[in-house]
Design a protein around this nucleic acid. Structure first.
Length: 143
DNA sequence: GCCAACGTTGGC
DNA sequence: GCCAACGTTGGC
């Protein structure tokens, strides 16, 4: 089991929209960065991840899970370079965890969100995952 | 809206 | 294959 973080600009695709998509989930389309794509190719069914609002919000708002393995991105117009997974919303954080909180906490100084600011799909360690769940008010984080 | 960081493109 | 130019991301 691995953990991930997905960035989305809420005015393009928000956590509310992700939740509206229900248990079937949605394709995480539009990633055109090799590192981010490779992260998606490495994902397994059931991998948990954070949903992060970039540009506006700047906070982690919810927990997702991978519900379909990497497959061609349907928005890539037949370009075989670009794949994506499907993810679905699992639950909200009781309290969103902001980028400011994360940057202020030495536990997260090596977190990709801090060190690789622009990477849109990034790995999260188990320690980071559990600590953010704790800060977010989840007593029993989904594993 | 600005601009730094950084990934990609393309000329050589 | 190098590297300058350029485009995009995303925090501020």
């Amino acid at each position: 089991m691995a953990y991930w973080l997905y960035k989305s600009e809420p005015f393009k695709w928000s956590w509310a929209m992700q939740k509206d998509a229900g248990d079937k989930g949605t394709e995480w389309t539009g990633v055109r960065n090799y590192l981010a794509r490779n992260n998606m190719r490495a994902m397994q069914i059931g991998d948990k991840g954070f949903f992060y609002h970039s540009n506006e919000g700047l906070e982690i708002v919810g927990i997702t899970e991978v519900c379909a393995l990497s497959h061609p991105d349907s928005t890539a117009e037949g370009d075989p370079k670009w794949d994506c997974v499907d993810i679905r919303a699992i639950c909200d954080l009781s309290k969103p965890v902001s980028l400011k909180d994360i940057k202020a906490n030495p536990k997260f100084e090596k977190m990709a969100l801090v060190t690789s600011m622009r990477l849109s799909v990034q790995p999260v360690t188990e320690e980071e995952y559990l600590e953010i769940c704790r800060l977010g008010g989840l007593d029993n984080p989904p594993r």
